[in-house]
Amino acid sequence: MRDRAGKSLRIEEWARRDSFLHRRDARSKVLAVLVFLVAVSSTPPASPAVFVPIALPLAAGLLASGLPLGELLLRASIILPFPLFFGLVGWLENGNAQFAGALVARSYISALAVLLLAGVTPMAELFRGLRGLGLPAVMVMVLQSLVRYLQVIVDHGMRMRRAALCRDGGAGSRESLWRRASGALAVLFGRSYARAEGVHRAMIARGFRGDYVPLRPARITPLDWVFLAVAAMAAGGARYLAGVGL
């Protein structure tokens, strides 16, 4: 939770690099990942081995991205507690360790695929791609301003906390700490309002009249189509292999 801002910076840095995957159109990448996720999700969690062939196209993607593999693998592991918990419960209940492993593999592979998507696509392009795929303009605008002001507001909150700590070192009764924390949140809430007003004013000054016109993504190239087709076939093929028990 605490170092989230740093994590998002790291992923932004990844997304600015260059590779075959980085150069693909955001829409084709989103669709490819969705097809892959469906293939993974529809594989019954019989045993972890079932997911070996499924992971192959993903492994190819990870290698093609040129991103630091170790860091990707580590970062995707933040989702592990969830499947581990339920896998463990299943194990304890019916002694089915295979199922536990399969559940973990299934959700870890899925998380890794989404992480790869974010690692090879700058946020701005991703949002434009989602717009191209039919996400309403309002949602795109909200997402954009959310990302844009995330750091600004979080930094503001951090500065307020530091100032409070400087005054009294975080000491005090629980009641006074509560009062201070809620007071700080209220002030931050007010600042967010003021920030939004400033932004809105700046938008109006530049000709905004309530209807947001997002930039459309560039044309999808034939190469993007080929990429999507190959990715989808790879996902389908891997799913077939998983199904016949290879």
Partner: peptide, 17 residues
């Protein structure tokens, strides 16, 4: 609309308090 986005940022910040 930007208010909605900025308030989303506020929620992120609030979760650190």
């Amino acid at each position: 609309v930007p208010l909605l986005g900025v308030m989303g940022a506020f929620v992120f910040a609030a979760q650190r308090m």
